[in-house]
Amino acid sequence: MLNAVEFQAKIQNGLIQILDEYKQELGEKDDIKVIVLLNKKSTQQKDIIDELTENPIQVNGILSREEIYNR
């Protein structure tokens, strides 16, 4: 009989922790099949534009966008 259980987990020291609610259902001697799906955001490398958008560099003496359009 084939049962499926789905949950999200983090890998710690190369191990996937089984949630407490599934530990009785998934015994240590059971044969299981593991399929790993990575979230896209964790697999994509950020380019410089993404990095600067999230962490803009503050430079003194440069006009802000509001100051430019108010002139």
Rank of each mutant, 00 (worst) to 15 (best):
M1G: 11
M1L: 07
M1Y: 05
M1S: 10
L2N: 08
L2I: 12
A4M: 09
A4L: 13
V5H: 02
E6L: 02
E6I: 01
F7E: 00
Q8W: 08
A9P: 06
I11A: 08
I11V: 14
Q12R: 10
N13M: 04
N13V: 01
L15N: 13
L15I: 13
L15K: 14
L15R: 15
I16R: 09
I16E: 12
I16S: 10
I18Y: 00
I18G: 00
Y22C: 00
K23A: 07
Q24H: 06
E25N: 05
E25V: 09
E25W: 01
L26E: 04
L26D: 01
G27Y: 00
E28S: 10
D30R: 01
D31G: 06
D31P: 02
D31C: 06
I32P: 01
K33W: 04
V34H: 03
I35E: 08
I35F: 10
I35Q: 07
I35R: 06
V36G: 05
L37G: 01
L37W: 02
L38P: 05
N39F: 04
N39Y: 06
K40T: 08
K40A: 08
K40L: 08
K41Q: 11
K41N: 14
K41P: 02
S42H: 09
T43Q: 13
Q44S: 11
Q45K: 14
Q45G: 02
Q45I: 02
K46A: 10
K46I: 02
K46W: 12
K46R: 14
D47Y: 02
I48H: 02
I48T: 09
D50C: 12
E51F: 11
E51M: 12
T53I: 04
E54I: 01
E54M: 04
N55T: 14
N55F: 14
P56G: 10
P56Q: 03
P56L: 09
I57N: 01
Q58Y: 14
Q58K: 15
V59Y: 03
V59W: 00
G61W: 07
I62S: 00
L63E: 06
S64T: 15
S64I: 11
S64V: 09
R65A: 08
R65T: 07
E66G: 03
I68P: 04
Y69F: 12
N70W: 07
N70L: 14
N70A: 15
